[in-house]
Write a protein that binds this DNA or RNA. Structure first.
Lengths: 225, 225
DNA sequence: CCGGCGTTTAAGAAATGCTTAAGAAGTGCC
DNA sequence: GGCACTTCTTAAGCATTTCTTAAACGCCGG
């Protein structure tokens, strides 16, 4: 893995043996910056950009709790994990309430620490807001609206939206009335319902969007030419 | 603490004894909704708005890991804490990598659990100006008032404020009645409650602020101008 | 020019939303 | 605790929107 690809991690650990050990352990996954006291931790925390910060509880110059509180009070929102030998429930409560996001006690399992760090740095990008382009129009199914590229927005009814979405799902394909009917309307409906809704859509949006294929059905986009 | 102020928490726990016990434990701090299998957990997780979700590993119908994966795949970014008896490091890694944010093993310390939940629900957004603009109105959630740009101030009741804040939190998003219901009203309430409060808000503020999306729900802002 | 096919219109049926009012529940004060 | 007041919840009737049907009209191809 190239150096550039790894997220940066600030490790604040004063133990001369454990510090480098942990740094080495995390090295495959993170670009680790090791500092050995609270003051340096504060400085790096405030000035650098870190994916996550790992802090020991007992630190010289500035205690871990104080360090976290200082960072948080300055508006630093970076995820912080406390890694320490102090494992009392009360200690954990104090650490977490000071602003830490997770608390792991020594001795720790390397795999668990890695997983917890992944959990802290993970970001959930919600699946792209389903948006479909139809000519000059953009369909927003969840909101059931269609917006033209010029800003005008039209709201559709449920059936209108379903019909348009169905057609837009496979541009250039010709859908028969029966196909559209069974998929998006009541089975008992007459095929003529489709015609009516096509008309509604054409009136609301623009005539050119839905093309009629005589004797077959309807089609969107990618016509002729 | 008034009922209205607590954040909502979804608890998925199948143990008939432990479930209600944990629910009671968390009750002072959260409005807890307890469901006892993965399918119900998925439904509530997808349709409701939760501050945090607590999930047991071993669940009937749908495993806890599968539940988390399903929620994450749907774009649900709500913090999730796994609370289970399975404490192997490997189990923890699997749970966290599935998308959980924290992992607590039974038996657990009540104080630690509470602190970890606080850490998950905490937001570090720098001293957020608790003010939300909604069209010509400015919502002050803590004070539960709404002031028009022309100086007129209207005070809202708790439910009115919650409803307006919920809608304003994600402008342009369409909220279903069920979403609003599970998040801010009693589970036993009829969906019609929402209609009533929307009516109250419209009368107090202005008709145009909350838009009805027929067949779906309600929405604020970003309507077609 | 004729017959099918597609379009447009209108109107009743069904579904959904709005409004109102009144009882229940909660809250604060004496 | 009891009382007055506010807030919450329910439910029912009315209003509106959406859905579906159907019939009149126009267009295209043979």
């Amino acid at each position: 893995m190239t150096t550039a690809d790894r997220p940066s991690l600030l490790l604040v650990e004063d133990d001369a043996v454990l510090g480098p050990l942990i740094a080495e352990l995390l090295d495959p996954d993170y670009r680790v910056q090791l500092v050995t006291n609270g003051r340096d931790g504060l400085h790096h925390g405030l000035t650098g950009t870190w994916a996550v910060i790992v802090i020991d509880r007992g630190l010289p110059v500035m205690d871990g709790i104080a360090l976290i509180a200082a960072l948080r009070s300055k508006g630093i929102a970076t995820p912080i994990l406390i890694l320490t030998a102090l494992g009392d429930a009360d200690e954990k409560v104090r650490g977490l309430d000071a602003g830490a996001n997770d608390y792991v006690t020594k001795p720790f399992d390397a795999g668990e620490l890695a997983a917890r760090l992944r959990a802290l740095t993970r970001t959930f990008t919600s699946p792209a807001p389903a948006r479909v382009m139809i000519g000059d129009w953009e369909l927003n199914p969840t909101q059931r609206t269609v917006r033209s590229v010029y800003g005008q927005t039209v709201s559709l009814t449920a059936k209108e939206g379903q019909l348009l979405a169905a057609l837009a799902a496979e541009p250039a394909r010709v859908f028969t009335r029966d196909e559209l009917l069974t998929a998006y309307f009541h089975a008992s409906d007459q095929p003529g319902v489709i015609d009516t809704y096509v008309h509604h859509l054409r009136r609301k949006i623009s005539k050119a969007v839905i093309r009629t294929v005589h004797g077959l059905g309807y089609q969107i986009g990618d016509a002729h030419e």
